[in-house]
Amino acid sequence: MFNFKQLLWILTCIFLLAGCATQPGKNKMGSTSSDTKESAQITHDLETMYQLGRKYQDEARFPEAITTYENILSINPNYAEAHNGLGVIYSIQGKFEPALQHLQRAVALAPLASHLRNNLGYTYFLLGRKPEAISEFEQALRLDPGNEKARANLAAIHSKADTTDTTGE
């Protein structure tokens, strides 16, 4: 029976070999129907891997989730949700520099994704960078007024500011 790391290694090798395969003649647009099918299959496989990473993340099995997300990024470095997953995990672990790098990359790749803005804002909030946190939460709410997490985070940052701004002179 294969363990998960062996399975991921095999999948990664398959993806890499598929990318190195010789391609039949291309049409005038530079692609073939087999290119489209291969691309769709890789996209499907990456989504399957991503869902597995999410499962590990939800179960707080962070080493497995990190490995899964890193494998996704080795195949497609522009997979925003894998960057997001790594950013959230690193933020939970208090590893804020890599968290910010991955979350900022995720937002750069998908600037209209409200949940990514919220996650970046929350990491700024944890770092005490309130102006940046507020900006990201507000942007998340502009993109999706129904984003309850962003709304709650914005309320939390404002209520914290209200309780800490009193001075006793």
Rank of each mutant, 00 (worst) to 15 (best):
G85A: 04
L143P: 05
E169M: 08
A40Y: 05
F2W: 10
S39I: 02
E136P: 02
G121E: 01
L120M: 03
T167K: 09
M29P: 01
T32K: 06
N153D: 11
E70P: 03
A40W: 01
S135Q: 09
A152C: 03
S114F: 00
T43L: 10
S31Q: 13
E70G: 01
E132V: 01
L73I: 13
H102C: 04
E138M: 05
A110G: 06
Y50N: 11
S135M: 06
G87V: 03
S34A: 13
N84Y: 03
I42Y: 04
I66Q: 14
I42P: 00
H158W: 05
L7T: 09
T163D: 07
L17P: 02
A156P: 05
P131W: 06
N78M: 08
Q23K: 12
L7W: 13
A108G: 00
E97A: 08
F4H: 09
N3D: 15
N27R: 09
Q104Y: 04
A108Y: 04
Q41N: 12
L7H: 12
K28C: 03
F2C: 11
F2N: 13
P111R: 02
T48L: 14
R54Y: 04
Y56M: 13
D58F: 12
A40G: 09
M29V: 13
Y124C: 01
F4V: 05
D45I: 06
L100G: 06
A161L: 14
A152W: 04
F137I: 04
A161G: 11
E136L: 04
K160E: 14
D35M: 14
R129L: 08
Q101I: 06
N3C: 14
E132K: 05
N27I: 06
A133M: 03
I66L: 12
T166R: 11
I75T: 11
A82N: 08
L127T: 02
F15R: 06
L112N: 08
A80S: 15
E47R: 15
M49L: 15
F125S: 01
K55A: 15
P63G: 02
H44E: 14
I89P: 01
E59Y: 15
L127F: 01
I75N: 10
L109V: 02
V88E: 07
N119V: 00
A161K: 13
A140Y: 00
L103H: 02
A110Y: 00
A110T: 06
L154N: 10
R105E: 12
L17F: 12
A161Y: 07
P77Q: 12
I42L: 15
N27H: 10
